[in-house]
C-alpha cells in the first residue's frame, strides 16, 4: 500500500523536475569533487614549498656559520702573527744585533757585560711574551685543572690588568671528560668579557653557574653601556656569531637581554 502510493506520488512529479534534480545533484558533486582535487593539488604544492623554504633557511644559516668560522680563523691568525711580530720577532731581532756586536773586535769588558745583559734581558722578555701568547691561545690552568679554575684565573687576569671587578659563583661540579665542551663555555665567557670591556666599558661583571632541572645554566651580567637589544643589527657581529655557533655546538640555548645604559644580561645553557 505504502509502496504503491510512493510509486504513484513519484509519478506525479513532472519528469522535467526529476531530471533537473538529478542534474543538479550530479553537478553539485562534480564541482565539489573538482574543488577538492584543486584544493589537494595546491595544498601539496604549498606544503612542499614551505619545506623547501625551511631547508633553504637552514642551509643559509649553516653557510653563514661557516663563513663566520673562516673569518674568525683569519682574524685569529692575524692576531697571532701580530703578537709574534710585535712581542717576539722585534726582540729577537735586537738580540741578534747584539750578538753580532759581541763578535766585533776590540770590545772592553764593560761593553761586553752591557751587551750580554741586554741579550739576557731581551731573551727573558721574549720568553715571557711567548709564554703569554701561548697562554692566551690556551690557558694551561684550564687544561690542567678544568673550567672552574680556568674561569677563576680569567677573572683574576681581568681584575689585575684591566681594572674591572668580577664576581664569580659556581654551583656545578664540572667533569674532566667534558673538557671539550667546557672549552666552548670558556671561549664564550672570554668573548663576553672582552666585549663588556671593549664595547661596554663595564666596571663590574657577574658570572654564575647553576644546575637547574638537569640543565647546566650560566648567567652573565655586566654594568656597561649595553646596546639596543631590539635592534637585530647589534646581534650580528662576528663575536656574536661565534658565540651562536658555539652554543649550537653545545646544543644549548642563549638569551641576550640588553638596554642602552643598562648593561647586558646573557643566559645560556649547555
Amino acid at each position: 500500500m505504502i509502496s504503491a502510493s510512493v510509486f504513484l506520488n513519484i509519478n506525479n512529479v513532472p519528469e522535467k523536475e526529476l531530471v533537473a534534480i538529478i542534474l543538479y545533484i550530479s553537478l553539485f558533486f562534480i564541482i565539489v569533487a573538482v574543488a577538492l582535487i584543486i584544493f589537494f593539488y595546491f595544498s601539496r604544492k604549498k606544503i612542499i614549498q614551505k619545506e623547501l623554504e625551511k631547508i633553504e633557511l637552514i642551509l643559509r644559516y649553516q653557510k653563514e656559520q661557516l663563513h663566520a668560522i673562516i673569518v674568525t680563523q683569519e682574524e685569529e691568525r692575524k692576531r697571532i702573527a701580530q703578537d709574534l711580530h710585535d712581542d717576539i720577532s722585534s726582540k729577537l731581532n735586537i738580540v741578534s744585533l747584539n750578538t753580532h756586536l759581541l763578535s766585533a773586535p776590540n770590545l772592553t769588558e764593560s761593553e761586553t757585560a752591557e751587551i750580554t745583559d741586554n741579550i739576557i734581558n731581551l731573551t727573558n722578555k721574549a720568553l715571557d711574551n711567548s709564554r703569554k701568547i701561548a697562554h692566551n691561545l690556551l690557558p694551561p690552568v684550564f687544561e690542567k685543572f678544568g673550567l672552574h679554575a680556568g674561569i677563576e684565573e680569567l677573572c683574576e687576569e681581568f681584575e689585575s690588568s684591566k681594572s674591572v671587578k668580577t664576581h664569580y659563583k659556581n654551583e656545578i661540579d664540572f667533569h674532566d671528560k667534558d673538557i671539550d665542551r667546557h672549552l666552548h663555555v670558556f671561549r664564550i665567557l672570554q668573548e663576553l668579557m672582552n666585549n663588556s670591556l671593549r664595547h661596554g666599558k663595564a666596571t663590574q661583571i657577574w658570572i654564575s653557574f647553576f644546575y637547574n632541572e638537569g640543565i647546566n645554566t650560566c648567567n652573565y651580567e655586566d654594568n656597561g653601556i649595553g646596546f639596543d637589544g631590539s635592534n637585530a643589527e647589534n646581534q650580528k657581529g662576528l663575536g656574536m656569531k661565534n658565540i651562536d655557533s658555539r652554543i649550537s655546538f653545545l646544543e644549548g640555548t642563549i638569551e641576550i637581554k640588553s638596554e642602552i645604559n643598562n648593561g647586558i644580561a646573557v643566559n645560556f645553557t649547555f
Binding site: I10, Y24, F28
Partner: peptide, 11 residues
C-alpha cells in the same frame, strides 16, 4: 534540499 521538491509529494 535538492530533493526537497521530491519529498513534498511523498506519502
Amino acid at each position: 534540499y535538492l530533493i526537497g521538491n521530491l519529498t513534498l509529494t511523498l506519502s
